[in-house]
Computed example of a mutant assay.
Amino acid sequence: MLDIIIILKSAVLIIASVLIILTAIGILRFKDDLSRVLYARIHILGVADMACIIALLALDAPLLAVTYFVLAPFASHAIANAYYYGEEKND
């Protein structure tokens, strides 16, 4: 029974690492000259956030996973607001 749990945890960690690699590819794929590229990058980083939460749950750290699950959207929203309201238009 213990071997099955170890195999399942390993599979979850492999899936989480694949999601993080796909996120990195997605971030590098976008060019900086696109308008509103920050919002697309924040959306892509949401995939990495969920992968990290899944990995933390697989590593038996549910309190840390819940904390990350609660705080990550607030940080993303703060970054998006700072970008949106901090833009200077030099026309």
Rank of each mutant, 00 (worst) to 15 (best):
L2R: 03
I4F: 05
I4V: 02
I5D: 01
I6G: 01
I7M: 05
I7W: 12
L8H: 04
L8V: 06
L8E: 07
K9D: 01
S10M: 11
S10I: 08
S10W: 11
V12I: 06
V12S: 00
V12N: 00
L13Y: 08
L13E: 02
I14T: 03
I15W: 14
A16T: 04
A16N: 01
S17Y: 12
V18Y: 11
L19A: 00
I21H: 02
I21W: 03
I21N: 00
T23G: 01
T23N: 02
A24L: 07
A24I: 04
I25G: 00
G26Q: 09
G26A: 06
G26E: 10
R29P: 06
F30T: 04
D32K: 10
S35H: 08
S35I: 07
S35A: 03
S35E: 08
L38A: 04
A40R: 11
A40T: 10
R41D: 05
L45D: 07
L45I: 13
G46M: 07
G46A: 08
V47W: 13
D49M: 03
M50Q: 05
A51T: 14
A51E: 13
I54V: 07
A55Q: 01
A55H: 04
L57I: 14
A58Q: 11
D60I: 12
D60A: 07
A61Y: 15
L63G: 03
A65Y: 10
V66W: 14
F69P: 12
L71E: 13
L71H: 10
A72H: 15
P73C: 06
P73W: 10
F74Q: 06
A75K: 15
A75P: 15
S76R: 14
H77E: 12
H77R: 09
A78S: 11
A80I: 14
A80V: 10
N81A: 09
N81K: 12
A82F: 15
A82M: 14
Y83P: 14
Y84Q: 11
Y84P: 09
Y85W: 09
G86D: 09
E87F: 13
E87Y: 12
E88H: 14
K89W: 15
N90M: 10
N90Q: 14
N90T: 13
